[in-house]
Amino acid sequence: MKQSIQLSALLILSLLLTGCSSLSPVKNEIPLVKGGLDIKPTNTNDTKLVIFNDSSVVGFGIDGTGRINVKLNDKGVAQLNIGRYTQVIVPKGKYQVDLEHLDMFHFTSQHQIELVKPESFLMIYATPTSNKAELLSTLPQDFEQKYRPVE
């Protein structure tokens, strides 16, 4: 009995702790926009893209597996923890978004988006088997209370 409890504790701990090795942050290759959310692109051919990590705190926050590395067209943007956002100004057009998070395995995913408006909002989140990215028309309610800029 004692042995089985020890074994099950060890097994569960090891399963949980596999997610604790942290994901190396992606190297930043696209300049991030510092400042408030009200900054607008000066060039009409550009768009401001706000990317925010909306992963579930219950599922990915406790063991820190909700950190997501973001790349745009193979160029590193940032690593976003849950509740963090970043913004970049890029030319309008089609982009490939690469997302990566580390849980028991490395979960990578690719998403195609098209940026046509002066401002675009990309919600990303980790799932138990992959990542998801959704382009929104506007920021969620109470965004500034719920999200902080990436450091």
Binding site: I5, A9, D54, V58, P128, P140
Partner: peptide, 29 residues
């Protein structure tokens, strides 16, 4: 033994808490 029992209990509760929150949490688009 007590420590292991407690650890197991805490971990099982923590890891199992909120099936839908873990698998399909967050707002809906």
């Amino acid at each position: 033994l007590k420590f292991f029992k407690l650890t197991t209990l805490v971990i099982v509760i923590a890891s199992g808490a909120g099936c839908a929150s873990m698998v399909d949490g967050g707002p809906t688009v």
